[in-house]
Amino acid sequence: MTEYKLVVVGAGGVGKSALTIQLIQNHFVDEYDPTIEDSYRKQVVIDGETCLLDILDTAGQEEYSAMRDQYMRTGEGFLCVFAINNTKSFEDIHHYREQIKRVKDSEDVPMVLVGNKCDLPSRTVDTKQAQDLARSYGIPFIETSAKTRQGVDDAFYTLVREIRKHKEKMSKDGKKKKKKSKTKCVIM
């Protein structure tokens, strides 16, 4: 069974824990209790493949930012979460993405942009803004509501699919490099 290491990042209060708990335990946590770091595991079937999701729910508070490099190193894919009623959390996505790329030393890291709290009427981040940002990053965008469960499975499952595509691409690139290195030079 394939294991996928997913990391949920975003500013404090955007609903990272609520999304994760909704996926794992099928219930909505409405009281806000700032996370330092929590880890969850769940076995699911995605596109006919049974897999184990190892999900790291991270601290959004700035005082825990020193811990970010460590979990970013171990993560295979990242859910970059903002709240649709919090423009600052949307603007912060850029910083999370840049930090992930720096730590992973790669421009090509599996990510999904997630606009959470889409059940709320007080939207300050337009869907088109988020779609445009995701398009500019070359990553999928999904709106979710941890409260109603809308888009929750889709967000995590899409990230797994992005990781699969990335692994497939990397193995193809690896095979191309191996083929090239088999060419021999004969000096007579």
Rank of each mutant, 00 (worst) to 15 (best):
T2A: 13
T2P: 13
E3R: 13
E3W: 07
K5E: 08
L6E: 00
L6T: 07
L6M: 09
L6N: 01
V7C: 15
V7I: 09
V7T: 13
V8L: 09
V9F: 08
V9S: 06
V9I: 13
V9Y: 06
V9M: 12
A11H: 08
G12H: 08
G12I: 06
G12K: 07
G12C: 10
G13D: 14
G13F: 12
G13Y: 12
V14G: 11
V14L: 10
G15A: 02
G15D: 00
G15T: 00
S17T: 05
S17P: 00
S17A: 00
Q22F: 05
Q22M: 06
L23N: 15
I24S: 06
I24G: 07
Q25V: 15
Q25C: 15
Q25F: 13
Q25E: 07
N26P: 06
H27D: 15
H27S: 15
F28R: 03
V29K: 02
E31R: 03
E31T: 06
Y32V: 04
Y32I: 03
Y32P: 04
Y32M: 03
D33V: 03
I36T: 00
E37V: 15
D38T: 02
D38G: 04
S39T: 11
Y40F: 03
Y40Q: 00
Y40T: 00
R41I: 09
K42V: 10
K42R: 12
K42C: 08
Q43H: 11
I46M: 10
E49T: 13
E49S: 11
T50C: 10
T50I: 10
T50S: 11
L52F: 13
L52C: 15
L53H: 05
L53Y: 08
D54N: 15
I55L: 14
I55D: 02
I55R: 01
L56K: 14
D57M: 02
D57G: 02
T58G: 05
A59C: 04
A59L: 01
G60H: 03
G60A: 03
E62L: 06
E62Y: 06
E62V: 07
E63T: 06
E63S: 06
E63M: 06
Y64G: 05
Y64T: 05
